[in-house]
């Protein structure tokens, strides 16, 4: 399990990365934390001719909490994100999700942008990005563009990132409604494994307990992590009673089209999707009720 040979270049700035990526060469790969890329290279499932290391670019490592969004540099380590209290206050769902991501050693090295750019359909952070419709800033030699998460994920391990682009920054929308709650859970075989199914939700309530804003999503065994804006809209104006949650979740589980593998067949995954989505909407609602 030794990687095939490649050339290595350590980038010192995003501009340098963009310059190297200019030709849009498919044989070039960026490496951030490498927690998914390196095993794939060791198994020779991927064999880039050239590896550009973005780990030493300080400009890609930051957390900036602003009124409407939390901005995170793409190469910020997952452990840094998880330990940032102001971030957790502004967008609690990220920390809630990170509790399910890998282990201490992988979070110390793994980055927030790397997880999104890798786009494993069972990974936790892409699901959060989908639910919040995070904005992803992609940079190339020609400039930057911002892609909404809902447009970013195109398939398993496939994103809208062009071969000449580098993910630079992720903007996580902050819901400023006072009574906003969120929850994340998943079922996996073992703790720290990729989810068989992950579910998360975020809702805001008005003073009367009626839902004013809602988003939820599912991941695992699917094509991409999914969020259901149209179904979530049906929750608005309700008190998130069992009946409406159940109806919305049933439709979501039907829309969520998970595949089967040796750990869980499609039918079991659909059941998990319904159960976990229900639980997370309830939990997010509970969480919102506690806040004022």
């Amino acid at each position: 399990m030794k990687s095939a040979a490649f050339e290595y270049a350590r980038a010192s700035s995003v501009a340098e990365v963009c310059d190297w990526l200019r030709d849009g060469d498919d044989d070039i790969k960026l490496i951030a934390g490498g927690q998914s890329l390196v095993p794939m290279m060791a198994m020779r499932l991927t064999r880039p001719a050239r590896l550009i290391d973005i780990n030493e670019i300080d400009a890609l490592k930051f957390v900036a909490v602003e009124k409407d969004a939390v901005r995170t540099g793409a190469c910020t380590r997952q452990c840094v994100i998880a330990n940032d209290n102001s971030l957790a206050k502004a967008v609690p769902l990220i920390r809630q999700a990170l509790e399910w991501v890998g282990h201490v050693q992988t979070r110390n090295r793994g980055t927030i942008g790397g997880s999104l750019a890798h786009a494993d359909p069972a990974a936790e952070l892409p699901l959060v990005a989908q639910i919040l419709n995070a904005q992803l800033v992609l940079r190339s030699f020609a400039g930057t563009r911002t892609v909404a998460a809902n447009d970013f994920f195109e398939g398993p391990l496939a994103t809208a990132t062009r071969a000449d682009e580098c993910l630079e920054e992720i903007r996580w929308p902050v819901w400023n409604e006072t009574r906003t709650g969120s929850a994340f859970t998943e079922v996996s075989r073992r703790h720290g494994d990729f989810a068989l199914v992950a579910a998360a939700a975020q809702v805001s309530l008005d003073a009367g307990g009626k839902c004013t804003r809602a988003s939820f999503g599912l991941a695992g065994g699917g094509y991409i992590p999914m969020t259901f804006p149209k179904l979530a809209a049906r929750l608005l104006g309700t008190i998130l009673d069992d009946e409406v949650v159940q109806s919305v979740v049933n439709d979501a589980a039907a829309e969520f089209d998970p595949g089967g593998d040796l750990h869980a067949n499609a039918e079991y995954r659909r059941q998990l999707a319904a159960v976990l989505a229900t639980r997370m909407l309830r939990a997010a609602c509970e969480d919102a009720r506690k806040r004022r």
Partner: peptide, 12 residues
Amino acid sequence: TFMDYLMPSAME
């Protein structure tokens, strides 16, 4: 692989 052959960790 160890991703699919699941040995229990301290959490299990």
